[in-house]
Design a protein around this nucleic acid. Sequence first.
DNA 1: CCTTAAACTGATAATGATTATCATTATTAG
DNA 2: CTAATAATGATAATCATTATCAGTTTAAGG
Lengths: 126, 126
Amino acid sequence: MKYSKQREIVLKALEENVIHPTADELYKLIIKDFPNIGLATVYRNLNLLAEKGVIKKIYGLNDAAHFDHNTHNHHHFICTKCNKIYDIPYDIASDIADNVWKKTGFAIERTELSFQGTCKNCQTKN
Amino acid sequence: MKYSKQREIVLKALEENVIHPTADELYKLIIKDFPNIGLATVYRNLNLLAEKGVIKKIYGLNDAAHFDHNTHNHHHFICTKCNKIYDIPYDIASDIADNVWKKTGFAIERTELSFQGTCKNCQTKN
DNA sequence: CCTTAAACTGATAATGATTATCATTATTAG
DNA sequence: CTAATAATGATAATCATTATCAGTTTAAGG
């Protein structure tokens, strides 16, 4: 991975953001200061940085992927109306829905807990 | 919601499937027996049935949405290589990653726990 | 058993997010 | 300074999904 000015810009823009922007949202913010950056570059660098573990890609609803500069263990609450993503502290995960309601006031309509990795089939195949 | 032959076909096809098919995968299975069904009809009915709680829509990776006829509380393991979705029993959720590894042999690379619903902003706006 | 409104269908166009392509430019090790 | 490699910006291509719309099916009331 070689240094690039654009990657630095993308990372900094994400770090300055409290919300969890999509690639396109971040692009629209960045072009205000750097009108020459390309949309594909923003996508490329966000995915690259997520691959390297510098940032985190959030797979929420199936519309657009969101990105998070906070790589520490924590959960997310996704509003099904406005699509905003809120942070949920990690230690809340024990009595899931009830606890979230009591501690945050978020009315949970759906809880998605999914694990991703390499299954046994694919582990042996490689 | 009115009865429709096509919806019955879609539901039955999903119920007969152990895998967690995408709309397109299910469509390709169904047209073998019912060549006249439309792709949009499969999408429509899967989303409608998921809305009504008859089946469950799985938001995993950000490619295509998967569907599950099992609406009981359980989790999923998504293989990042073959994209297959496996069931994980519900009572496993306490000591998340470690327990899954010990009980199933799945090597977890990413755990996604996300809650969806209506946030406070949107609750008051409506 | 009719009639009619509402729901549903299949075909296809449109949309929206993301990736692929490719000629050009920037970075970096020696 | 130079060559090899990675990165860029513009844009075309892809892929999943939704919107549209004219025609068909369903169901409830007379």
